[in-house]
């Protein structure tokens, strides 16, 4: 952590905030504050420079046009790149996940990504819409992923990244794997928003950001019930 305050940056809410992505920011902030960590939230619109020193960057989903625009501006800005090189963590969802890679498709054209992780995305044969679930990479030591996906892309992982999860329900990257992680970067197609259904991922980001191996447990009654209900829903044959 930079000083004693955890600094959260919400990247371009004017362009990338379509599926309740603000929720990820609110949940991270709350879980930090409940552990007594002071939090500073920085919302950065796309016409402003990104701070190059912060602890966690959040980047959300969006429509094709805003996604392409966001990628151009993030490449020109360079702030998130510098921050990650200095050890910042990133949670990227859907369009935001795609644009961290080498390239993605928007409005029928291939666009340059930020080249921060070894993934590339193109169009799939159909839109992936519905519940998404999977077993998270055991090295991360987290319970199963639960979410809702809504995207037309398919994402291909290079050797430089690991899948976040092995898909048990839904499509994710390609029907086999979902999301990706590398260093302190996590990308996922899961909305819900992702952290409302997966508070353990929020705590993973907080552990990365603070350097603490363990964080005090919180009362997760309602998110446990939500997870239980959603897991039961996907386990039932439709």
């Amino acid at each position: 952590m930079s000083e004693s305050t955890l600094r959260l940056v919400w990247v371009y809410p004017d362009l990338l905030s379509t599926y309740g992505d603000r929720g990820n920011l609110l949940i991270l902030a709350r879980r930090a504050q409940q552990r007594g960590l002071p939090v500073e939230i920085v919302e950065v619109r796309s016409d402003r420079p990104l701070p190059a020193t912060a602890d966690i960057y959040l980047i959300g989903g969006g429509e094709d046009g805003p996604q392409a625009l966001a990628a151009q501006r993030l490449i020109a800005d360079g702030g998130m790149h510098r921050a990650v090189n200095q050890g910042a963590a990133v949670l990227a969802v859907c369009a935001g996940y795609q644009l961290l890679g080498t390239s993605f498709y928007a409005k029928g054209a291939r666009c340059h990504g930020l080249n921060m992780i070894d993934i590339s995305s193109d169009r799939g044969p159909s839109r992936a819409v519905g519940e998404l679930a999977g077993e998270i990479d055991p090295r991360l030591g987290l319970p199963p992923l639960s979410g809702f996906e809504n995207h037309g892309g398919r994402t291909h992982l290079g050797p430089g990244v690991s899948p976040l999860a092995r898909v048990t329900t839904g499509i994710g990257n390609d029907g086999q794997t979902e999301g990706a992680w590398h260093g302190k970067i996590v990308g996922t197609y899961s909305h819900g928003p992702a952290l409302s259904r997966n508070p353990a991922i929020a705590d993973l980001l907080l552990r990365w950001a603070t350097g603490h191996d363990r964080l005090p447990a919180l009362d997760d009654t309602w998110s446990d019930r939500l997870r239980g209900e959603r897991m039961a829903a996907v386990a039932r044959p439709a």
Partner: peptide
């Protein structure tokens, strides 16, 4: 089918009122 929009709504105006919740997706 997607409930993520709940996080696009600020429910703060309900603070101070007695609030009950129900429905298929009350946990969300």
């Amino acid at each position: 089918l997607d409930t993520s929009w709940l996080f696009d709504v600020d429910f703060a105006p309900l603070r101070g009122r007695q609030v009950f919740i129900t429905g298929d997706r009350a946990y969300d």
